[in-house]
Nucleic acid binder design. Structure first.
Lengths: 337, 337
DNA sequence: TTGAAAGCGCTAACAT
DNA sequence: ATGTTAGCGCTTTCAA
């Protein structure tokens, strides 16, 4: 290694102290004299000493790093969540490692495996839309490995969760469409396996009922990959084109943008005058065409809370945490033509 | 540690072998008998053994992880580069750690520091638009620490680089505008510190010349934070509104979308009929309004090549690599109204 | 072909 | 207040 660092030993030798004294001085232990601390710290600074986290991790069985698993960082919602996570992780000196599943259950479990094997101190994750096997996660959690779920969470697992008030968000979006005069509102959503989709579906139904509109199976289209494959959205669009709907509520970031793209690609198939309300945290909604009403999640806040819960859990060695589920608010934003 | 893993020792004890034999068997050493290998590997699989990379790293002085530094992952261009990097890193069993600078030089050096201290095997980075001090990077490189630069690269540093054919991309974009009949083409660009901006400016000038159009200082507006702050774009817009330009070439992802957003925000200030050509890798360009012509970079490919170069360098212990600069092609894509 | 022993850099009992 | 020692889990001489 040509770019070798100074080690504790080096400093100890140079200062004629023992490595343990140096270690303690560096970590400001109370059992070290003021003079020694000054001596050590000055020297350390001079030679630009950095503790080796690999060695430290091996010793204290901690890596001071946490893993994040999301479907893809290109999704604005997730990149905002990541920003939130980083804001607390960095403050507490944890490194964050991001992994993408691209909605593949296999990649997801591989990443969990990797994170576990690499001695991550804990994991923050939003499930892939494909996942249906929670067995291995259950095991991990049972064995005390800290995991906090956010956004897309597995109900059956007993671990802290941070989610959005999906039902309310959906309800308000559909209510808004109804207020605009829509009498037959379609719904485009993703996999039935996703917790948030199901909650949004519930909100959709509730709002229909509140407006004395009938719930019709054929007005609801599912995209199993959450729109990661544009073809599934295009198929849904062609299906929907057979129905006479006059408003549409869309359940996810990728689906919302995908719907707009499909409208463009098949002009005349579905009128772009039909009002659209959709979940999206894209920061480009204002330049979308046609204009839409966006249901925005508190993404940054979600990342923040999830990270806080995780680090609490990591640092509360042993003490079983309460497995609460935190619910964050949504907001509707309208964009004029 | 409640969620303890099996260790080499555990396996050795269970199989009545020595840890060294187990270690060798697991890594398929030629000096281990076929039978022992089978025995060990079967058992390892059974108990779901994973080597502890922390311990291994401490021993072999390698962490099998590489750091990525970009301004922000929300930027589609960078998220595509990251995808490219991951595609080769995972294949070679390296973990990737992503850090965002948000265009801050301070955060950038902090991240480099952190990566170095955490024994990353190497770094892949695109400079922040604020960076002007390359001293510490120079030192690191001198000491043999592997760094590969991409997209926004420091000319003065002697390290491998992967960039886009910016000059050509700019030239073609401006040529296209000229072909559309534009006689006075403005240019919106980012910091003068960024290598790619300067190359694009050169391409812009060249194309103007080729079309016998005069280069005018006042038609070129700089945004020091690359549009990360929307206000700087809005200011540029107000400045530009004073000029009679009939076409605009924009030099970056964030700037391109920011320009469109500013157009929306200040209707009437600048006609949205004025043709726009801009660098962007957004995968939502087709639903932007107004429509634009996009200059697309080979982002995925860039990540791939950069990662390959870095891993080559990491694994070519000592042997000084050739410090080539690789140039990747761009393509123009037009979107109809 | 296998094992014993040392050591990567650090921390934490346990001395002193 | 400081030092000694052992050991985290792994790899790697060196010896058998």
């Amino acid at each position: 290694m040509t770019y070798a660092h100074y080690t504790l030993k080096d400093i100890a030798k140079a200062l004629k102290l023992s490595p343990s004294t140096v270690s303690r001085a560096l970590r400001d232990s109370h059992e070290i004299s003021k003079e020694t601390k000054v001596l050590v710290n000055d020297f350390a600074k001079k030679v630009n000493y950095r503790v080796n986290p690999i060695a430290r991790g091996l010793k204290v069985r901690k890596s001071f790093s946490i893993g994040i698993i999301v479907s893809e960082i290109a999704n604005n919602f997730f990149s905002q969540v990541v920003d939130g996570i980083e804001s607390v992780a960095y403050a507490k000196n944890y490194q964050v490692v991001i992994a993408q599943t691209k909605e593949s259950a296999e990649r997801e479990s591989l990443h969990v495996e990797q994170f576990y094997a690499r001695s991550m101190d804990g994991i923050l994750m939003a499930m892939s839309s494909e996942t249906h096997n929670y067995e291995y996660l259950h095991d991990l959690i049972q064995r005390g490995f800290p995991i906090v779920f956010f956004d897309r969470v597995p109900q059956q697992l007993n671990s802290p969760k941070v989610i959005t008030d999906n039902k309310k968000g959906a309800y308000e979006a559909v209510q808004y469409l109804a207020n605009q005069g829509c009498k037959r509102i379609a719904h485009l959503t993703s996999s039935k396996k996703l917790s948030n989709s199901m909650e949004r579906l519930a909100g959709y139904k509730l709002a229909l009922m509140a407006n004395h509109q009938e719930y019709e199976e054929k007005l609801v289209k599912y995209c199993d990959y959450g729109g990661l494959q544009q073809t599934e959205i295009e198929e849904a669009l062609h299906e929907l084109a057979k129905e006479q709907f006059d408003g549409i509520f869309i359940s996810g970031d990728r689906l919302t943008t995908g719907y707009l793209q499909a409208l463009k690609k098949f002009p005349g198939l579905i009128s772009d005058q039909i009002p659209i309300a959709g979940f999206t945290n894209s920061d480009l909604v204002d330049i979308f065409s046609p204009s839409i009403t966006a249901v925005r999640q508190s993404a940054f806040e979600m990342g923040k809370r999830a990270a806080e819960l995780l680090i609490e859990q990591i640092e509360a060695k042993g003490a079983k945490p309460e497995y609460q589920t935190e619910v964050l608010p949504v907001s509707l934003i309208h964009f004029a033509e």
